[in-house]
Design a protein around this nucleic acid. Sequence first.
DNA 1: ATAACTGCAAAAGGTTTGCAGTGAT
DNA 2: ATCACTGCAAACCTTTTGCAGTTAT
Lengths: 150, 150
Amino acid sequence: MPAAERFALYLSKHRLKMTRERRALLEHVLSVRGHFDVDDLLRRLGRTGHRVSRATLYRNLPVLVESGLIHKVEMARGQARYERMVGRHHHDHMVCLGCGDILEFESPEVERIQEEVCRRKRFVMTGHTHQIRGYCGSCAGDGRARGKER
Amino acid sequence: MPAAERFALYLSKHRLKMTRERRALLEHVLSVRGHFDVDDLLRRLGRTGHRVSRATLYRNLPVLVESGLIHKVEMARGQARYERMVGRHHHDHMVCLGCGDILEFESPEVERIQEEVCRRKRFVMTGHTHQIRGYCGSCAGDGRARGKER
DNA sequence: ATAACTGCAAAAGGTTTGCAGTGAT
DNA sequence: ATCACTGCAAACCTTTTGCAGTTAT
C-alpha cells in the first residue's frame, strides 16, 4: 500500500483529519533521505512555501510515528531525530561524534539475544534503542577520535 | 584502589581541587544503590545537611563520569540518570514503562557483535547505549502493557 | 454542526553559564 | 597568590500547552 494511502487510513481509523499541514508534512517526510530533525523539516517546509508551525510539527510527528511511517531516534541530550521507515526494516545506529554522521547497522543475532534476555527476565519488550557512539572512518583518522566520550 | 583515593588521584592529575562539595557528592554517589538522577542526589545531600547547589551537581557529575566512578544513563526525552560503577562491570538496561524500574542485563555476545560491526564499517567505538523498553514481570500482568510505546 | 486542528505565545523541564565572591593548593 | 570552585539567577534549548479562531468531516 502506498504510504500516503496508509497514512490516510491511519488517520480515518483514529478519527483524525487530513489537513493541508499533514499533507505537506507527509510529503516532505517521505522525500527526505537520511535522518532529520524538527528544524530540518521546518526549513524544508518553509523553502517550498508550505507554512506549518513548529507546534504543528511537534504535534504531528508522533502521529507519523504511530502510523509507522517514520521512526524516532533519540539522540544524546534529548535531541530527537526522525527517519523514514516506509519500505525499510529495522536497524540500529552508529553515531559519529566527529561529523555527526549516522551509519546504520542491523544484526538479527542481537535481536535474537535481546528476545532471549527478555524471556529470561520475564520482560515484555515493546521496543529498544541500540546506539554505538564513536568515530567514523574519516573522522577517526584525523585526530578527533582522541576527544573524550560525551 | 579505594574509590575515594581513585577520585583524589583523578582530581590532582587534572589539577582539580578536592572541595567539600566534591567530597560530599562522592560519598553519596558511592552509597546509593541503583540508579539516581540529579534530584535524587540533591534531596539526599539536603537530608544529610550537606548544602550543594544544583549547579555544582551539574558541573561535577561529568567529573565523576570521566573519572570512571559513575556512568551516565541517558533515558528517553533527555532525562539523565546515573549509576555507581565502582567495582561493577559493563551492563545494559531494560526500562519498564509501567513502573519506571530499571533492570540490568549483559551479553558478551552482543558486545562481540558490536565490535565486529564496527570493524566491518571502520568505525572506532568509544561507547554505546543499548536499552530495551517494555514492561517488567509485574507490570506486564496488570494490563498496563497494553499502553503504547513512548 | 461538531470535533479536531492550527498558529501564537507563554510555559515547562532539564541543563548550562556569567558573575562575583570563596577557598584549595 | 593563584586559579579553580561555588551559589545564585538568568539564559538556553527543545518540547509542550492553553487559547481563540479555523477547517475537515
